[in-house]
Simulated scan of single mutants.
Amino acid sequence: MPIRLGKIGYLNVLPIYHPLESGLLKNDFVVTSGPPAALNRLMDAGELDLSAASSVEYARHPDKYFLIPDIAIGSRGPVQSVLLLSRRPVQELDSKTILVSAQTHTSAALLGVLKKKLWKISTGLVTGNATAALEAGERPEAILCIGDEALNLRYHPDYPHRIDLGEAWRELTGLPFIFGVWLVSRESWERDGERLEAAARMLVEGKRWGEENIHEICVLAAEDSCLNDEEMCSYFDGLVYDLGPEEQRGLAAFYDCLVETGVLERAPELRFLPRI
Rank of each mutant, 00 (worst) to 15 (best):
P2V: 07
R4N: 02
G9W: 02
Y10F: 15
V13F: 09
L14E: 14
P15V: 01
P19L: 08
P19S: 04
S22F: 03
N27K: 02
F29M: 10
V31C: 05
P35T: 03
A38V: 09
A38L: 12
L39E: 06
M43S: 05
A52L: 13
Y58C: 05
R60T: 10
R60G: 00
P62L: 04
D63A: 13
D63P: 00
D70L: 10
A72N: 09
S75R: 13
V79D: 11
S86T: 02
L93N: 06
T97V: 15
L99G: 06
Q103T: 12
T104C: 09
L111F: 08
K117W: 04
S122A: 14
T123S: 11
L125V: 10
V126Q: 15
T127N: 11
N129R: 06
T131D: 07
G137K: 09
I143S: 03
L144E: 07
L144V: 09
R154A: 02
H156N: 14
Y159H: 10
Y159K: 12
H161Y: 15
H161V: 14
D164G: 09
L165P: 11
E167P: 01
W169H: 09
G174E: 12
L175F: 12
G180V: 00
V181Q: 03
E190G: 13
R191M: 07
D192Y: 00
E194I: 05
R195V: 00
L196P: 05
A200T: 01
R201Y: 00
G206H: 09
K207M: 14
K207F: 04
K207W: 06
E212P: 00
I214A: 02
E216Y: 02
I217E: 04
A221V: 08
D224N: 15
S225V: 10
S225R: 11
C226I: 13
N228W: 05
E231S: 05
M232Y: 05
Y235L: 11
D237Y: 07
E246N: 10
Q248K: 15
R249E: 15
G250Y: 09
G250W: 06
G250Q: 08
L251E: 03
V259K: 13
V263G: 01
R266M: 04
F272K: 10
R275K: 14
